[in-house]
């Protein structure tokens, strides 16, 4: 059954989008987003977003990778398959730093990709916004504000009027199943 899932409004340029973001935030909306073809400097503050926690995810994984790397080499060289090579100790940790570093970076990089996807709830191949025809322009040259139906302050007519009052054009009810 078709129903209203949110409201979409278009703004002319990055400066207007930032102004709109501040006003939507100040009006008390929480489940809204500002869409643009490229990241806009200053938008995080305008929307009142907290810092991305991605750094902690990546940091944690780099340490995990490095620990695993050194422990793995220790286990192989000193426990499972001890072999005297060039008179060096079994656990020649100095020589093991290269592989440890490689795994530090490798784990961190996977953390950055999958952490980013996880925080963004991606991959998500369908989303109510894709019901809108004009929304395809967001990856080209258009700037949108979307407000979700689930927002506490959401009201079909009042929210539409509000978006129009702050300069939104082509205001559209996003309707879908």
């Amino acid at each position: 059954m078709n129903q209203t899932l949110g409201i979409l409004a278009r703004f002319a340029n990055p400066a207007e989008l930032i102004e709109a973001a501040k006003k939507v935030r100040d009006a008390g909306y929480e489940k809204f987003d500002c869409h643009s073809p490229f990241p806009i400097h200053g938008m995080d503050d305008a929307m009142g977003l907290k810092r991305s926690p991605l750094g902690y995810i990546v940091g944690g994984l780099t340490v995990t990778g490095a620990t695993f790397g050194m422990a793995f080499q220790y286990w192989i060289a000193a426990v499972e398959y001890p072999l005297v090579i060039a008179g060096k100790p079994f656990f020649s940790w100095q020589a093991f730093f290269i592989v440890t570093f490689a795994l530090f970076v490798l784990f961190g990089a996977f953390g950055a990709l999958f952490g980013m996807l996880g925080l963004n709830r991606l991959p998500r191949l369908h989303h109510p916004l894709f019901y809108s025809d004009q929304f395809a322009r967001v990856t080209d040259d258009a700037f949108f504000v979307s407000i979700e139906r689930d927002d506490a302050k959401f009201d079909e007519s009042k929210t539409q009027e509000f978006l129009a009052s702050i300069g939104g054009a082509d205001i559209e009810l996003v309707v879908g199943e």
Binding site: T62, M116, L129
Partner: peptide
């Protein structure tokens, strides 16, 4: 494209991920 919508809530984490990857790739 994984369902990319260009929302700033996505860009925020995306830019951070890009920065992290650049930081990791540099010493690498």
């Amino acid at each position: 494209a994984l369902g990319w919508r260009g929302g700033n809530r996505q860009w925020q984490h995306y830019e951070k991920a890009y920065l992290m990857l650049a930081g990791l790739a540099t010493p690498l």
